[in-house]
Design a protein around this nucleic acid. Structure first.
Lengths: 230, 230
DNA sequence: ATTCTCTCAATACGATGTATCGCAGCAGAA
DNA sequence: TTCTGCTGCGATACATCGTATTGAGAGAAT
């Protein structure tokens, strides 16, 4: 057989490591949301059969965990924060921005304990920033509380964003004018306070709302830190 | 044909309304979690074929929305709260207890805007309790902030609970002793603050942690209410 | 050279959400 | 009374999913 007839060397498929798998999954999720991610499609992106993946992950849930930890690498601040407030504040902001870049993160945030190396690293620098200013227990409570806040706030923000996108209406228009169901409900008169809020409340954009709430919570933490009795 | 031969009157299947569908779905979810809920299984509980359901809901997501709203009926307090702090506090507690009764609620909480009648009713009494003590905008910010906190906190609590259950270990034992991955990571010395926290921190049960964070956030709200400049 | 083992991926399976389609039963007209 | 049309419901069908099983093929060992 001449050289020209020699078949491709079996196209030895790219060695395929965890990193590439996770990257492919994240790309898919960025494009089509979490349920755009199927093991088959991830594998297809890597020119592999679905079962190839099971050498590197043992379940789809594990893949999600790896994706989350990969995003925690984006969240981890590059420089050490100045004080505790900056540490918690930038953690909140960086998480929010990561979720805006990867909306699927909102679906996963808080759904399972995050124990990947990057998540742990984030926890480490955050706790370290609080260490000097509070006892361990207070520090953990502070991290938990602030974390709970921004987790919940981010989820709501993404949820609203999707709802607006799905109806093609801004939150303002949607609430005020045509969100048909809500309008009808408010018109029943059974929800006067809600109706007034929707009608008279000033529209604040999501970022400002996030910021306000965050400041409040950080103020609360500050109060407990200066008077470390609680 | 004699009476005895007459076939069953075709066992006219029970008329099947939304309420019964949602109840069946909730029962399934309570037993087997959210992915124990399939339209086929829900229908089977009601002696119906899967497609019967599509007369009452048009998508599985709608069923989830209905389930959530049904739980909001449990969350809605029966008596009008005394003051704003009680309103927000009991809302948080009742939501948490609902999530402990229906763990799947944690997966859905904050995932989509809750616009069902019961959710609106909850929003109504909450806002109403704040109306007298703050302007609309401050009131909404307060509800959002506290809501974000307890949403996130509940999700984390349920997530931890499941993790403990899955490993068969209490959080204490799991962190301290055998959570193999975490222990190994902490042993690397790359996470001194975390390691110290796990090692020296006092164990607080989930309820106490929830309570503490909630108090902090409510204190923060109180501070903004008395000095309504912000 | 031959056999054996072990790895890896193709095939197979049961389950899912939902579109489609066909039939049963009834209302009305001849 | 019989025929015809219609309507609404549910059985069947389909594409897709996560993952178990299995079979083939490469490399090692005798």
């Amino acid at each position: 057989m001449s050289v020209w007839d020699r078949p491709e060397p079996l196209a030895r498929p790219v060695p395929l490591d965890q990193e590439r798998i996770v990257a492919a999954a994240i790309a898919l999720a960025d494009e089509g949301g979490l349920d755009g991610v199927s093991l088959r499609k991830v594998a297809a992106r890597l020119n592999a059969g679905p079962m190839r993946l099971y050498g590197y992950i043992s379940t789809k849930q594990e893949l999600f965990d790896l994706m989350v930890d990969e995003v925690y690498a984006e969240i981890l601040p590059q420089e050490q924060p100045g004080d505790w407030r900056e540490a918690l504040g930038t953690l909140a902001h960086r998480t929010r921005h990561a979720a805006l870049r990867h909306e699927w993160l909102a679906d996963l945030l808080g759904g399972r304990p995050a124990l990947g190396p990057n998540a742990l690293a984030v926890g480490e620098v955050t706790l370290a920033a609080l260490e000097s200013v509070a006892g361990i227990d207070t520090a953990m409570r502070a991290v938990e509380t602030v974390g709970a806040y921004f987790t919940g706030a981010i989820r709501r923000e993404i949820a609203n964003l999707r709802a607006e996108r799905a109806t093609g209406l801004s939150k303002h228009d949607w609430q005020r004018a045509s969100g048909p169901h809500l309008t009808r409900m408010l018109a029943t008169g059974r929800f006067p306070a809600l109706a007034k809020a929707v009608h008279d409340g000033t529209d604040v954009d999501a970022e400002a709302s996030f910021e306000t709430g965050l400041d409040w919570v950080l103020d609360a933490v500050a109060a407990k830190l200066t008077r470390p009795s609680a």
